[in-house]
Design a protein around this nucleic acid. Structure first.
Lengths: 283, 283
DNA sequence: GTTGTCTGTCCGATATATTGGACAATTGAT
DNA sequence: ATCAATTGTCCAATATATCGGACAGACAAC
């Protein structure tokens, strides 16, 4: 009577009310002026995001400075997390960073999400098979992140590293993450500044959405010169049973790659994506 | 002037004031009687620990029930974490679990900790080389966790899975984590119930500490019949420059294994541990 | 139909967590 | 030696986050 497993009570609910993954969500619309109190939990999330953005240990006092938070508060929170091994002392004596508990939690995450586990394998397989650079990407908040990557020997240097958050419009993969949205939803979801590409060009949301829908129809998306002028990105979506995009697997190849080769890679990719979609079902 | 990297300000500070990784740290010494208010942050940590203990998605209401916390509070906290992708909806509609952000944070953790990255490799290498089961373990709070494991084909079933927290006295590896402590520190550090082994026997803290110190001297520790009657555990410590034990790498072999073979494995293990100790220096 | 149990949201009241400041101890630079 | 900038801890005051309870809607069982 207690452990009765229920089924989806609240059918329409995909995204939580507030979407915030970027730094400093802030409660007031004005750039924090009034010395309002912030809640410890909000501060905690900000600390995580700051550490992730830095990707290296940082002094506790420095956290307070960057977050514009009282030192005493940050010490309080950090000490709590240190006690739980969610944060750890790292680097030279007085710096902190993510701790072991986070590692274990991520392990649990992987265990329940077949995509991540199997996606890694597929990335490796495709990379050794083709010699190209392969990535597995997943949406995170209103950005997306490279979750696994295998670099090809031949290609120079890839813009994004594993784990960093990238604006959705910047890549072919991003198309699939938003293909189900209306224009209004899209505008609300993606921060305006993310439509400004790395080379300075601005992307029209309307055009972006059209591309996204076309990509969704085609099942693959090939875009040249998005990451940089000499790279072409080919992406295919991993979808759940409702057709919603959970992840993308993609090649990053030289823009000089011939049509025939591109078609070859495309079909490899869609096969992989279909495979992952199938096995990801038993979540 | 701003980014001046400082060196260890507070030389003697290894463990945070309060050590708590077990469930329900609780603030009052009495088993929570008075309906005192709990802080959101404490609740947050409890939620993480609960999810980790369950290792599968759970309904939000159920979290509140198990934590004996008000539903409204848990909803508030969980929704905040959902917005930050630290938690995610998973399983059937109304359940939550660790989210993508945790995965990314763990990635950052790995990047800064050479031990974890290289430890995985060593585990794989030793496993394929010897055909035995190999584990990498690290302390987490007052327990320890298997961080990486490669199962041998031959051995039946290993008691501990990757990620689960195990009492320190239960394994050979545990010896190294406490070898530097005094008896009083040891008693304060390890929960009394952890000295009761799986088979019901109780381990004397004094004897345990003596074993630990002997193990530290020897550089390896071989103990039979601890996990179960038919398994022997051989462990070697990965230490930092101060000689403090950061992790253990260990074999789990059949108790029928001959002396010569055990010696062979021991020397392999110590070599691996030394190697990891060396490369882990540039933290 | 009714009943019981669940989810997700909202709302005052009050217990308290956050805050800003002050503190001693440490470090590096001058 | 003196200075300026750190770290880590402690404290009392007050802005507010937590709590408990109530709510509507969904689902299953009967």
């Amino acid at each position: 009577m207690e452990r009765t497993p229920r089924q989806r009570r609240n059918p329409r609910r995909e995204a939580p009310p507030t979407a915030a993954i970027g730094l400093r969500p802030g409660r007031a619309s004005k750039p924090d002026q009034a010395p309002i109190r912030a809640r410890g939990l909000d501060r905690a999330v900000e600390i995580f995001q700051l550490l992730h953005a830095l990707r290296k240990p940082i002094a506790i006092g420095e956290i307070a400075r960057r977050l514009k938070a009282p030192r005493s508060t940050i010490y309080e929170i950090v000490n709590l997390f240190l006690a739980a091994d969610i944060l750890e002392y790292a680097g030279d004596g007085s710096e902190v960073f993510f701790g072991r508990a986070i590692y274990l939690y991520a392990n649990d995450y992987n265990a329940t999400h077949a995509i991540v586990r199997l996606g890694h394998e597929e990335v490796r397989r495709l990379a050794t098979l083709t010699g190209e650079t392969v990535q597995l990407c997943m949406p995170v908040g209103n950005k997306y992140a490279v979750v696994a990557m295998q670099n090809s020997a031949r290609l120079f240097r890839i813009g994004s590293d594993v784990g960093v958050l990238v604006p959705i419009p910047w890549t072919a993969s991003g198309r699939f993450f938003v293909a189900h949205m209306s224009l209004a939803e899209l505008r609300a979801f993606i921060p305006p500044e993310d439509f400004r590409l790395q080379d300075g060009r601005s992307l029209d949301p309307r055009k972006f959405l059209a591309e996204a829908r076309a990509a969704r129809e085609a099942g693959v998306c090939t875009i040249a010169g998005l990451i940089d002028d000499y790279a072409t990105c080919i992406a295919a979506p991993v979808v759940d049973h409702k057709g919603h995009c959970l992840a993308c697997i993609c090649f990053i190849v030289s823009s000089a790659t011939g049509r025939k080769r591109l078609a070859e890679l495309s079909s490899l990719l869609t096969a992989s994506a279909r495979h992952l979609s199938a096995v990801s079902e038993e979540d």
